[in-house]
Computed example of a mutant assay.
Amino acid sequence: MTTGEVVHAAVAATPITPEEAHAGVDSPHCGAVVGFSGVVRDHDGGRSVTSLSYSAHPSAERVIREVAGEIAARHDGTRIWVAHRIGPLAIGDQALVAAVGAAHRGEAFRACSDLVDLVKERVPIWKEQFFADGTVEWVGAGTEQ
């Protein structure tokens, strides 16, 4: 391959799974498939979290595709799959799923790490956290999560 390929990049209102991401990048060319799953956890900053809700700017779908394309262009021979959920999520749900297939593990790990970092940095999706004490907190795109 002379450049990477984006096989899927989306903002999803329905559940996403690591299995579909891995299957999406599987290819006879790929000797390595690396994945990432951002899972809703039950705590943040020492506080108990009961659920989350993600909201997206109307440009989020375009931006996630651009990000995936940039990573594919940067990492020769890769296959890229990425999706970020929106809407209400429960503890244990997948919020961000990514997979990268490549001929070798080093390139797959680097590309997947770059992909996740860039999605978190650029895609305009905001997280609303609901805490057990009844408080709510918004976390904006581009902030540490």
Rank of each mutant, 00 (worst) to 15 (best):
A98R: 00
A13T: 13
G4K: 03
G4M: 11
A10S: 11
S48Q: 14
G140W: 15
H29S: 13
A83G: 03
V40M: 08
E19Q: 12
L52E: 02
L96H: 04
H57L: 05
A132W: 12
V123T: 05
H104R: 01
E66A: 11
T50I: 12
R65C: 08
H57A: 01
R105F: 05
D76V: 13
E137T: 13
E144R: 11
E121W: 14
T50R: 10
G134Q: 02
R122K: 09
V11E: 00
W81M: 01
P18F: 14
I80R: 00
H57G: 01
V7W: 07
F36Y: 14
S53F: 15
A141I: 15
A12R: 08
S27W: 10
D44A: 12
I125N: 00
G134E: 08
H57Q: 02
I86G: 01
A108D: 06
A56G: 05
I86H: 04
V34G: 04
D76F: 15
V123K: 04
D42C: 05
G69D: 11
H29D: 14
K120R: 08
V119P: 02
A13E: 12
T17G: 05
F130T: 09
A72S: 02
V67H: 08
T135H: 09
M1L: 14
R62I: 13
A13F: 14
K120S: 04
I71G: 03
E61G: 12
I64L: 06
H29P: 00
G31D: 02
A95T: 01
P28Y: 12
G140K: 13
V97D: 03
P15D: 12
G106M: 14
A10N: 07
E121Q: 14
D26I: 12
V40A: 11
A32D: 05
K120Y: 09
A73C: 03
H29F: 14
G4L: 10
H75I: 08
V11W: 03
H84Y: 06
A56P: 07
D114E: 13
H104V: 07
T78Y: 09
G134I: 08
L52A: 00
G69E: 12
S55V: 15
G69K: 05
T14Q: 09
A12E: 14
S27M: 05
H57P: 02
V11M: 04
G77P: 08
D76K: 15
A132G: 05
V49E: 04
R74P: 00
T3Q: 13
P28V: 11
D117S: 11
A68C: 08
E20S: 15
H57I: 00
A68N: 03
S113F: 13
H84N: 03
V123H: 04
W126E: 09
I64M: 08
S48P: 09
A132N: 01
K120W: 09
D117H: 07
A12F: 11
I86Y: 07
A56L: 11
V97E: 03
G38N: 06
H22C: 15
I80W: 00
A12I: 05
H8K: 05
V82W: 10
D44K: 07
S53C: 13
I80E: 01
G134T: 02
G87P: 05
C30P: 04
D114Q: 02
R41M: 06
W138T: 01
G142R: 03
D117N: 10
P15R: 04
